[in-house]
């Protein structure tokens, strides 16, 4: 279970983006969070994935309260999450070849021995051929780079996936392909999903249930 309890968060203490938001994702469940741009849903997604420290409230992951945020989060909790953002170019280190981009979480966790096999399996799964793996981000399209970012998010076999507007920049076919990869992974691993976005048609088709930002009980920051 992924539980967000009465979370208040933002970028300035005195003016949080939202207050008192609660949201729960059951094990294996896919929840779509819908809201207009600027409402704070990306901020909430980052809190859920332990990437942004809330001003107040709790995040409980499979019964254990979050033990820290960002690099201070306990490794076991940090690696329980796979995260994909809207803009692959902002989240991918431009110097890394795609193969190294995908392998990065394994190396960062001292598991270099597994890199070769895992990279082969995951890049195949997301449809990236070996000829692309030697390229750097500026040498591939947005869709190809997002495929690599999804492979990276799955490489530690997370129990929770957080996808923030993962497909907003992508064409219909690449969108359907990436969603299919996420769903295939979830079907075999039982991972839960929090998908954030503004495309109602997409999230309704993709997720078990969708919730509206306005229905979360968020009171505005100021």
């Amino acid at each position: 279970m992924l539980e967000l309890q009465d979370v208040t968060a933002g970028y300035e203490r005195r003016a949080p983006v939202f207050r008192d938001v609660s949201l729960t994702v059951a094990p294996g469940e896919a929840v779509g969070l819908l809201g207009p741009s600027g409402c704070g849903k990306s901020t909430l997604a980052r809190v859920a994935a332990l990437l942004h420290r809330p001003d107040a409230g709790r995040v409980v992951i499979d019964g254990t309260p979050a033990g820290g945020w960002r690099h201070r989060a306990p490794r076991a909790q940090r690696t329980a999450f796979g995260v994909v953002f809207q803009q692959p170019r902002l989240s991918a280190d431009p110097r890394l070849r795609l193969a190294d981009l995908v392998a990065e979480p394994l190396r960062a966790n001292g598991r270099s021995a597994e890199v070769a096999d895992a990279v082969r399996e995951l890049t195949e799964r997301v449809g990236l051929g070996p000829e692309l793996l030697g390229r750097r981000p500026h040498e591939v399209s947005d869709g190809q780079l997002q495929r690599a970012c999804l492979a990276r998010a799955l490489i530690l076999k997370p129990r929770w996936l957080v996808c923030d507007e993962m497909t907003a920049m992508l064409d219909a076919s690449t969108t359907a392909a990436l969603v299919a990869v996420v769903e295939e992974y979830r079907a075999e691993s039982g991972a839960g999903l929090l998908a954030v976005g503004h495309d109602r048609v997409l999230l309704r088709r993709w997720c078990d249930r969708t919730v509206e930002w306005d229905g979360l009980g968020a009171s505005p920051g100021e």
Binding site: D171, A172, V179, D199
Partner: peptide, 13 residues
Amino acid sequence: ALPEREFTPIPGM
């Protein structure tokens, strides 16, 4: 491939 249609990707790239 649209979610309001079949939501199936075109295989390959």
